[in-house]
């Protein structure tokens, strides 16, 4: 049993069958990549996992519990964090505040009325957020306005914010899309380091083969809403069906 079990998930948008009978099992503490051509349904699948979309059929189990019918914040509190295709951070807040919010969410749950305390007096939160900034190599940007950072730094911050919640499963939707080569390599290194150092499962949607083959232990190829194959990177590289559906086009 994997930590994430997707069974027969189907999703229709009007006349379009975006997902049809997707089965997927993600093993705990592994890095699992989902690849596939544009429009294959990768983002739709991910949205079904985090509560943004509700699949028409099938089930999604995380750690033995169904996530269907729960709101995004409830699913997050179960231990699934998500990194977006374009970084979603609190642009109007400082980098430190960005990092403190997930720490509060981890400690206090989805709502707590702490309206009189000074947030800087929450020593455990401040320490944890500072440590995470150091881990993310951005301690010097502590007081910066999050909006004024480079795209690579925003991505880094977003990943750090997700990690601050100590999730069991980290989902990433094309985390390097639109990034320069250097930023892409930094992100790969960061993700590698994360998966080596932490007890965390990573599921990554990616278009960039370089990223996928540097990171993944397991790869699922999705085409037109259904999984074509699931295998380890070596076998995927040579798989004729994959070449035809995917690599052939992009090469």
């Amino acid at each position: 049993m994997g930590i994430l079990e997707v069974k027969d998930v189907g999703k229709r948008f009007g006349g379009l069958q975006a997902l049809g009978d997707v089965n997927l099992s993600v093993k705990e503490n592994s890095v699992h990549a989902i690849i596939g051509p544009n429009g294959a349904g990768k983002s739709t699948l991910l949205n079904c996992l985090v509560g943004k979309l509700i699949p028409d059929t099938g089930s999604v189990m995380f750690d033995g519990q169904s996530v269907l019918g729960r709101t995004p914040y409830e699913i997050n509190q179960m231990g699934i964090s998500r990194v977006f295709q374009t970084p979603e951070i609190f642009s109007d807040l400082s980098v430190m505040e960005n990092m403190m919010i997930p720490c509060f969410a981890k400690r206090d749950g989805s709502f707590r009325m702490h309206a009189i305390e000074n947030m800087m007096d929450e020593k455990d939160i401040v320490e944890k957020a500072e440590a995470m900034l150091v881990d993310m190599n951005m301690a010097d940007k502590r007081e910066m306005h999050a909006a004024s950072m480079s795209r690579g730094d925003k991505r880094r911050l977003e990943i750090g914010m997700c990690l601050a919640q100590e999730p069991r499963l980290l989902l990433l939707d094309e985390p390097t899309a639109g990034m320069a080569r250097a930023d892409t390599n930094n992100t790969i290194d960061l993700l590698k380091q994360i998966s080596d150092e932490r007890d965390i499962t990573i599921a990554i949607i990616e278009h960039d083969m370089h990223v996928v083959f540097s990171l993944a232990q397991r790869i699922t190829v999705l085409a037109q809403g259904t999984p074509l194959v699931e295998d380890n990177p070596e076998n995927i590289k040579g798989h004729p069906k994959v070449r035809e559906a995917y690599l052939g086009e992009s090469a």
């Binding site: 985090v50 709101t71 995004p72 914040y73 997050n76 509190q77 964090s81 998500r82 977006f84 979603e88 951070i89 609190f90 919010i101 997930p102 509060f104 969410a105 981890k106 749950g109 989805s110 709502f111 914010m161 919640q165």
Partner: peptide
Amino acid sequence: RLNYTGLN
């Protein structure tokens, strides 16, 4: 981001 950070 708030929603996906587990906050309601």
